[in-house]
Computed example of a mutant assay.
Amino acid sequence: MASVWIVFASEHHSTRQIAARISDRLVEQGHAVEVHELPAGPLSPPPDAVVVGSAVHDGAWLPAAETFVQARAELLGSRPVWMFSVGMTAALPGPLRLLAARAEQPRIARLVGLVRPREHRRFSGVIRRGHLDRKGAMLFRLLGCRYGDYRDWAEIDAWAAGIGRELDGRADRTEHPGLA
């Protein structure tokens, strides 16, 4: 059994719900999980592994998640880490969705490069009219986007199950320094 922290930044609760779902799946597999919304105070005792996620706004993680990764990059790099981003790719019409799915967001890519996680996964979240300002809502509609809940729970469950299986092979590693 591995000890796992799931740390995340969420603005409209979609990322929080994804983090909770990942936690549920890891607990079902017998792992000890703590879930922390960022910004969080010092986190201890040190975990065996970390899952870090954030909502994506304007091509970047939320500031609390960026700060967490930048401040703890060296320590995060010393243990198994998985990262996930939650955006609105699935809300885009066909050709734009394909383009967005292939696009690399430079600020997020820098964070991934700092930590070198086992995997960085991109999920679609929930987009509602109230999530966008007037200008954003106009652009959203002009692009042919649609509001809705685009989370693929089966994909999220499968990803979490894969993390759990990988942790099963790493649970007996030596203790790492803390992330406080």
Rank of each mutant, 00 (worst) to 15 (best):
M1P: 15
M1G: 13
V4D: 11
V7R: 10
F8N: 03
F8Y: 14
A9T: 13
T15L: 07
T15S: 02
R16S: 13
I18S: 03
I18W: 01
A19V: 10
A19H: 04
A19M: 05
I22N: 02
D24C: 11
D24K: 13
V27P: 03
V27L: 08
G30K: 06
H31M: 15
E34S: 15
H36I: 14
P39Y: 11
A40D: 09
G41F: 14
V50I: 02
V51P: 01
V51T: 04
A55C: 05
A64K: 09
R72L: 12
A73S: 09
E74M: 14
L76T: 09
G77A: 09
R79I: 00
M83T: 12
V86F: 01
M88H: 07
M88I: 10
A91V: 00
A91I: 00
P93C: 09
P95W: 10
A100S: 02
A100Y: 05
A101M: 14
A101V: 08
A103Q: 11
P106I: 11
I108E: 05
V112G: 05
L114A: 09
R116G: 10
P117A: 04
H120E: 12
R121G: 04
R122S: 06
R122D: 05
R122W: 05
F123R: 07
G125N: 07
V126M: 02
V126Y: 00
I127A: 05
I127S: 06
R128N: 12
R129L: 00
H131F: 15
L132V: 04
R141A: 15
R141V: 14
R141S: 12
L142H: 06
G144T: 01
C145K: 02
Y150A: 03
D152I: 15
D152N: 15
W153C: 10
W153T: 14
A154L: 14
I156P: 02
W159R: 06
G162R: 06
I163F: 06
I163L: 06
E166L: 09
E166D: 11
D168I: 10
D168P: 07
D172K: 14
R173V: 06
T174S: 11
H176K: 14
G178D: 12
